[in-house]
Design a protein around this nucleic acid. Structure first.
Lengths: 314, 314
DNA sequence: GGGAGACAAAGGATGTTCCTATAGATAGGG
DNA sequence: CCCTATCTATAGGAACATCCTTTGTCTCCC
């Protein structure tokens, strides 16, 4: 079944409204025979006469009157689609789909989402918090358009930006004497460690790096407690259950709040974060803007004098 | 602002559903590059990326997901228009617009409309009852697609069929002695006549014909009462207010009912009725079918042995 | 009767849509 | 690790649709 074209419907509606083909043709900036022809083609497609033509007047047939409102609706829908795409482009509406590691909400997401919503109140935001490799998989699968992940990352099919944020792992304890000086791997091996799953999963860079150091130093790391979240590990450390290792920005606000002390590792362990998108990945305007804003906020965080002294303070 | 074409939207929807351009192209029986190109054109029109293409997978962008339901709706509308035109053609829906002289309901319209509705319950019927020249004007104006009028009729811009129905004017009285034989113009001139406006309007053939006869015979016709409807004239005649002239088929059922007597005119006055449509007049399927059915019913009426004897009985 | 206004028909130019063939990229199997 | 199968993109050309101009016909109006 061949379908009418939108163009034909537009000509039809205009001709019905202006009651002459000549005027309708002019309204569409085409010659009169062209419009006549398209109307004729439409009538052929629909197999029904829409107009009664006379030299003087153009009259809609009953069928034409019955079909006119449907034509108008179809046109309105297509126009609304074009309109929607314009609004998606201009961020009046649209959707952000973005993945982050789960602790990002502690220092990034709240501000990011608040600020984005303030600027673009019509845009839906779908942010999922997973670990970096899950985010990478989701982006690869197309479930997410982009994400913020910790480096290094398996970059198959992905475009990975330069590092956009650097954090540092710090040692945290309720006992101030444990944090008087930077903590080395041999010291670490002797302390009762509470580690979070999210920072200690199989392929986590921190785990890899610490295990390497331990191996070189001939010691072993054996956490006494493993929990899911860094925040939980911090709470346990605050209760004196043991000491912990957390990303500085994750712990920043909580360390003081819980009356904890901290010290950098020696040598320092830095964590690099970057954006990922699909290779050849078409990113929707909303998500692109979300990433731009994220980058700005991360830069701001980085600049604020909140970074741990670590080596920098030497 | 250039609009997407329906074809592009169809390709878009299919590609989104099948998750590959190749399969979508096959589904539409076109080559894969053709579909790719149309999708690209659509993205250019909307100025937004709809898909992320990879060698292995085709992924809708967020924008694509936002626009997909709109595309589906637009397509559904156009399809529904094609569907509606099909139903209009098959008389599952549509509109009849038809004009008749006002007394047609007395012997034609009820049966016609009943029968038509029984056969085509989805079709709207708009029948207006006016006098013949008003019907002709309405058809000329395009307010009606067709009509049944009494001949002769001003046929400018109109197509007039052959006579499809013949009626005869009869003389009606409560006094049997008035109807013993065919009534001539001289007799008529002496009788107290009740005439209906609809049968005595300025350009009415009956009026024209009787005035001519009167003139030839040197008499004048001077109705004692003029009313709007033939039925009303009949009722007055039944009360003995006077005698009347009515179309036989109009009076047929009422004459007996009211205990009236009738006689033909001498010479007889016949009334010819025909269908009219606009010249080059595209008539919608529903109206065309309505006319066909009307013609059948009129033929049936004509055949039934209900015609007045008149000359024929000589 | 001539002019103006409206639609249709015809023939030709232009643009779109579609095709085939080909190249590049990636996943999966020997 | 290469080879094949499966995608998409590109390029060039064919087929078709759209539009234009010109012309014809009809009707109304002056």
């Amino acid at each position: 079944m061949p379908l009418p074209t939108i163009r034909q419907l537009e000509y039809f509606v205009t001709a019905a409204r202006l009651r002459t083909f000549a005027a309708a043709a002019e309204a569409h900036h085409i010659a009169q025979p062209s419009l006549s022809e398209q109307i004729a083609a439409l009538e052929r497609t629909l197999e029904v006469a829409l107009f009664t033509r006379t030299a003087r007047k153009l009259i809609l047939t009953d069928a034409g009157q019955d079909l006119l409102p449907l034509a108008e609706r179809a046109i309105a829908d297509v126009v609304s689609m074009a309109e929607t795409s314009r609004r998606v482009r201009s961020l009046e509406e649209g959707t952000v789909s973005f993945g982050t590691f789960s602790s990002a909400h502690l220092y990034l997401l709240t501000e990011l989402i608040q600020e984005f919503r303030a600027q673009h109140p019509g845009v839906r935001i779908r942010v999922t918090g997973l670990n970096s490799s899950e985010v990478a998989d989701a982006v690869r699968e197309g479930d997410l358009e982009a994400g913020l992940v910790q480096l290094p990352i398996d970059s198959r099919e992905l475009v990975v930006t330069q590092s956009v944020f650097v954090d540092q792992v710090v040692y945290v304890s309720r006992r101030e004497e444990h944090t008087r000086e930077p903590v080395e791997i041999t010291t670490l091996a002797q302390r009762p460690l509470i580690l979070s799953e999210s920072r200690w999963s199989h392929d986590d860079p921190l785990r890899v790096s610490l295990l390497e150091r331990a191996q070189s130093a001939g010691v072993t790391l054996d956490p006494i407690v493993e929990v899911e979240f860094q925040t939980h590990a911090l709470e346990l450390a605050a209760k004196g259950v043991g000491d912990s290792l957390v990303s500085f920005h994750v712990g920043r606000s909580l360390i003081a709040e819980h009356g904890l002390f901290w010290a950098p590792l020696e040598p320092p362990v830095t964590e690099h974060y970057a954006f990922i998108t699909r290779r050849a990945g078409a990113v929707s305007p909303a998500t692109a803007e979300f990433m731009r804003l994220a980058r700005r906020i991360l830069a701001r965080l980085q600049m604020a004098r909140t970074r741990p002294p670590g080596r920098a303070s030497d």
